[in-house]
């Protein structure tokens, strides 16, 4: 137990480091801009008409304060952190004066829901097929299935999502290809709404699963074919232990810990994929929000989204990391 607490403490240290490095990077990238975000915003606003110089001056002051841009670089850095810790990212420019945090939290469930369900499906599917393919090496069906999924693996999320969009939007239009629900849907909780949401999530989830499952499959197949040569598997086979039991309790139980570590390590990439897929399908999550914020020149929203993505992914990685020792009694503090 003590060893586990040390392990958790170390992982927590790593979490803090990730957040520190990520947020600092975000800060410095956003401050090396050759364009002045305040001036940009003012141009964006004055484009719509009024241009009273006094009002502009006032606006400049207010925006500088809102964006945390007073003082020297170090003071700005401190302001940035203190706001972040309070969860205050300032008001959104494109939806003034709604706070950025509120806008993000409205989009977050879509991304989290899509990411969790797609990751869960591809992790389970890929690992199951990989374990079976590694264990029953002669099976034709498994070979063909594996080859199919592995073949999809190198195709980038964007391109695969795009192909699905073409297939189901133009060639065989059976599924909704854009949005998270019907345009003028009645948003009170009902069976039709749930069904609608599920229908809209099929294509984005499918893109993520098709790309993701292949790498879990390859990893699991390689692990399985190494583990089946381990003495404890041979011994169990000679002990007359049934093959499903061996596969489940001996092979997969030993392979799942490295796969979970792999999941933790690739969570950042999975998040990228989710966000990119959302953009293709106009899914109302973080990704679409990010692109719209860029197009609208919404400085605080872009910054808030980048920071929150880093923190969110880091926390998820931390959670997976501290859970995996529960599956492997040998993991100690190191």
């Amino acid at each position: 137990m003590a060893a586990y607490m040390i392990f958790v403490a170390r992982r927590f240290g790593q979490l803090l480091l990730v957040v520190f490095l990520g947020i600092s990077a975000t800060f410095f990238i956003s401050h090396m801009t050759p364009v002045d975000p305040v001036a940009e915003s003012i141009t964006a606003i004055t484009n719509f008409g009024k241009s009273d110089p006094e009002a502009i001056d006032l606006m400049r002051k207010t925006l500088t304060e809102l964006y945390g841009l007073q003082g020297n670089l170090f003071e700005q850095y401190v302001t940035f952190w203190s706001r972040l810790i309070r969860g205050d990212f300032g008001p959104s420019l494109s939806a003034f004066p709604t706070p950025v945090s509120q806008i993000i939290f409205r989009a977050l469930p879509w991304t989290v829901g899509l990411m969790i369900s797609a990751t869960l499906i591809s992790f389970l599917l890929g690992n199951t097929l990989g374990a079976l393919a590694g264990y029953y090496r002669k099976s034709r069906i498994l070979k063909i299935l594996s080859l199919g999924l592995i073949g999809l693996q190198p195709i980038p999320y964007y391109v695969l999502a795009f192909i699905l969009l073409i297939l189901f939007g133009f060639v065989w239009p059976v599924l909704p290809i854009t949005g998270g629900y019907e345009m003028n849907a009645d948003l009170t909780l009902s069976f039709t709404l749930v069904l609608d949401i599920v229908r809209h999530s099929i294509l984005p989830a499918m893109a993520l699963v098709l790309v993701g499952a292949g790498s879990w499959l390859t990893g699991m197949r390689a692990l399985t074919s190494n583990i089946v040569t381990e003495d404890y598997v041979t011994f169990a086979e000679l002990g007359g232990v049934g093959s499903t039991r061996i596969l489940r309790s001996y092979v997969v139980r030993n392979a799942i810990v490295p796969q979970l570590t792999g999941l933790a390590m690739s969570l950042g990439a999975i998040f990228n994929g989710t966000v990119i897929t959302e953009i293709v399908f106009g899914y109302p999550g973080i990704g679409t929000l990010l692109i719209n914020a860029v197009h609208a020149g919404d400085y605080s929203l872009v910054l808030g989204l980048a920071s929150l993505s880093i923190i969110g992914v880091a926390i998820a990685v931390f959670l997976i990391d501290i859970l995996s020792p529960l599956l492997d009694p040998r993991i100690k503090a190191e």
Binding site: Y232, F235, R253, P329
Partner: peptide, 19 residues
Amino acid sequence: RWRHLSYIMQGSMNVLNPV
């Protein structure tokens, strides 16, 4: 196997499922 014929492998220290 095991009912009639049992086999203790070489390196029998590592034949038990570690997890």
